[in-house]
Design a protein around this nucleic acid. Sequence first.
DNA 1: TCCATATAAATGCAAATGCATCAATATGGA
DNA 2: TCCATATTGATGCATTTGCATTTATATGGA
Lengths: 148, 148
Amino acid sequence: MSSPAPPDAVIRAWARLERAHRAAQSTVEARLRKAGLPPLAWYDALLELERADPAGLRPFELQKEMLFAQYNLSRLIDRLEAAGYVARSASEEDGRGQRLTITKSGRAIRRRMWPVYADAIAAAVGSRLSESEATTLGDLLSRLYVRA
Amino acid sequence: MSSPAPPDAVIRAWARLERAHRAAQSTVEARLRKAGLPPLAWYDALLELERADPAGLRPFELQKEMLFAQYNLSRLIDRLEAAGYVARSASEEDGRGQRLTITKSGRAIRRRMWPVYADAIAAAVGSRLSESEATTLGDLLSRLYVRA
DNA sequence: TCCATATAAATGCAAATGCATCAATATGGA
DNA sequence: TCCATATTGATGCATTTGCATTTATATGGA
């Protein structure tokens, strides 16, 4: 059940995706940490919840949005809740489910993270690509995760 | 010391880099695991060592190649050595250092991983982009980690 | 209605990661 | 030569991740 070997260009793209991600990710995480702020994943989750307001999101929706593993998301929410940034409440449509909403202080911390995060993105990506290159890159990357 | 806000295209590229990487990575890791093979990082390290033969590599060289954190690499090597895939020996040029070489069974496992890995790359990337798109993607990604 | 199966979310336990720090050797002046 | 500083690599400890499984509820037939 083996497909033909992927072309070199494909293998190279994959390998570079790994490296580029590692480099950019570590830049961003390091800057957030140095500023005494929570990690990246917190920002992403909070942003999604803020966008989804006011009804909030079900965990499985957030999970699909973030492409996070279910058990990881479950624990990420634990931490966000413990920090007071997210509120869990029982879902009314589904007895198994919950509904997540961002709290006031969740909004506040997200806002506080943004300048540091934005700077880090600028350093990791903005300073290295033109705007049109960034657009091209984003378009190609999105093809790697939209349903095949 | 805050730069101007990064353009939307840059932010989008960053966000998509995260998601694309998560999607592709989890595809690849899942397939390797399902096949009862070691994780991705083992492959990458073994490949670098195989390419570097016969002198092998110093850990810090491998580290730079893989963009791995020093302590992570140190432990990755522990595991590779424990599995018998890599040999550590004292460096002759530098009393602090080591030299890493791939063993016969390291080569064997890498070879055994390749078909599964290649298939996974094909699924995660190859099936979604043309060859020339993959080239463009790879070129742009490499800009994100070569020394700024 | 009942049951088999699917889906939502949590969790126990093992493994990997991150952070800070350490020990050992190298190096480059004064 | 000596010492301050840098570099190589390992490690203790806390946190996070991954895997497998579990609990609870939903759903769609027979």
